[in-house]
Measured scan of single mutants.
Amino acid sequence: MASQGTKRSYEQMETDGERQNATEIRASVGKMIDGIGRFYIQMCTELKLSDYEGRLIQNSLTIERMVLSAFDERRNKYLEEHPSAGKDPKKTGGPIYKRVDRKWMRELVLYDKEEIRRIWRQANNGDDATAGLTHMMIWHSNLNDTTYQRTRALVRTGMDPRMCSLMQGSTLPRRSGAAGAAVKGVGTMVMELIRMIKRGINDRNFWRGENGRKTRSAYERMCNILKGKFQTAAQRAMMDQVRESRNPGNAEIEDLIFLARSALILRGSVAHKSCLPACVYGPAVASGYDFEKEGYSLVGIDPFKLLQNSQVYSLIRPNENPAHKSQLVWMACNSAAFEDLRVLSFIRGTKVSPRGKLSTRGVQIASNENMDAMESSTLELRSRYWAIRTRSGGNTNQQRASAGQISVQPAFSVQRNLPFDKPTIMAAFTGNTEGRTSDMRAEIIRMMEGAKPEEMSFQGRGVFELSDERAANPIVPSFDMSNEGSYFFGDNAEEYDN
């Protein structure tokens, strides 16, 4: 993207840094990872977990959730003011799984939030270390993106479920800051804005008074975040219109849905970061690795190297396929839920299948599930090659597409044709070009129609051997075009429920 120079890199967003050079960025990201790792080690000690239990991804998720809940100030305040039966607002906890007599047992633990905050700050040299908290939120978000298709949420806001490739980060909490905003897809931002506008339509006082002023500035800020994701002048001009509207209503909703559809071809720039579970960072720190000293990046080879040398386990339900569970977590670790499966298959070195073909449910185990038949197995999170994460949407291309997802959002900077089903997408653009945004709409449609099938995206960008740390010898991959490109292809993934 041309304006790259004016933006802070995501590592800076990730670490609240002012302008830093590459070495400083690597050190501050490393410091953040160190903090998460030290916190995780301490929690495993508190909970008396064995090494194996500490490497269980379900335990990692519970521990991450506990610290996120302990620092969720708004919710904590709300819980104190609106006490609900049987919930102690000062405590947080969740299921911890232990191996007892050759069987997995679930144990519900409860801790004072104050105590968890103390352990977290102690692991982070006394700081609140917001960057580390956001990092864990993005890992949870990436896992949700890989596990669930947001059909219901899309339909509720009037969008087409086939636009799911635009929904990265749709389950990120509001408090995820600049680093969170960077990884949100165009569809996620559109959905947040539509929800806001709908509230304004239904509630006369939404934009009024002292609160209304705050609401208005939040609305304009979200519009600017979305505008910054678009790469064409016409899309940005249309966002200006939406932002400046005196009284946002149905016309703005129409414009936003139009823009979301246009992003299936004229893709937005959305950041991709490899955020790993805390149970990967903990053992690495415990083994003596100093992330701050060595430096770390979320968008280069580092996460690949770390996963190459990590042992992570997962509980497996009786009829689940461990290899499929591994694929789910591998995609989440690489922030690749909406990437082209052919690119992923090449990088991973084994075939990556669409969601609907995987015999696996989510990673988390519900409290009512029976533990008797639970097994555990090693997650295979290694890769054959590594590639640089991208934040450009890439230019655009036609490809055989599917009944489910009709476009992709690249996660890796790797040369390819970008699949999208042009006739299906263009069919949504018939007729409606009147109104105050008509010239911009016409211009956007013209650009979409001009998108050429034979153009290559990320020209000359390749993948790298894991021994090639400096990215000196790019390998331009070859793809098996007979395979499906979309992950949520004609899909039956479970729906995400809060």
Rank of each mutant, 00 (worst) to 15 (best):
R38N: 07
S457Q: 00
C279Y: 12
R436N: 08
R38I: 04
P423Q: 05
S310N: 13
V29D: 06
A237N: 15
L61I: 12
K91C: 05
P477G: 11
R317N: 11
V270T: 12
Q235H: 14
A401K: 15
D203L: 04
G288W: 10
R441V: 07
M426I: 15
M371N: 04
F458P: 13
S84E: 15
E53W: 12
M440G: 05
N250Y: 13
A153N: 13
E18H: 00
A178Q: 09
I116D: 08
Q58P: 06
E375K: 13
V312A: 06
M448D: 09
A493L: 00
F488W: 11
K48N: 08
E320M: 10
T396E: 14
M66F: 03
G30Y: 05
E73L: 15
S377K: 07
S402F: 14
L298F: 08
P477H: 05
P248D: 06
G54H: 00
M440W: 07
T15F: 10
G86E: 04
Q399N: 08
Y219R: 04
E107K: 08
M239H: 09
L341I: 09
T62L: 01
L341P: 12
D372T: 12
K98E: 14
S69C: 04
D302E: 07
S407Q: 15
R384A: 04
A131G: 03
G200R: 08
N334R: 10
C223W: 05
G212A: 12
W139I: 08
T15C: 03
F338P: 12
F71V: 05
F488N: 11
L418S: 10
D112W: 13
V352D: 07
T15N: 01
N205G: 00
T146K: 03
S274D: 08
I301V: 05
S467P: 05
S141Y: 13
Q415H: 01
S486V: 10
N309D: 13
F338G: 02
L56K: 07
Q149R: 12
I197N: 14
N309G: 00
N319W: 07
A271D: 03
R461V: 12
N59H: 15
D468I: 06
L315H: 03
L328D: 07
F291T: 08
P474H: 09
D127E: 02
A22K: 15
K113D: 10
F488R: 11
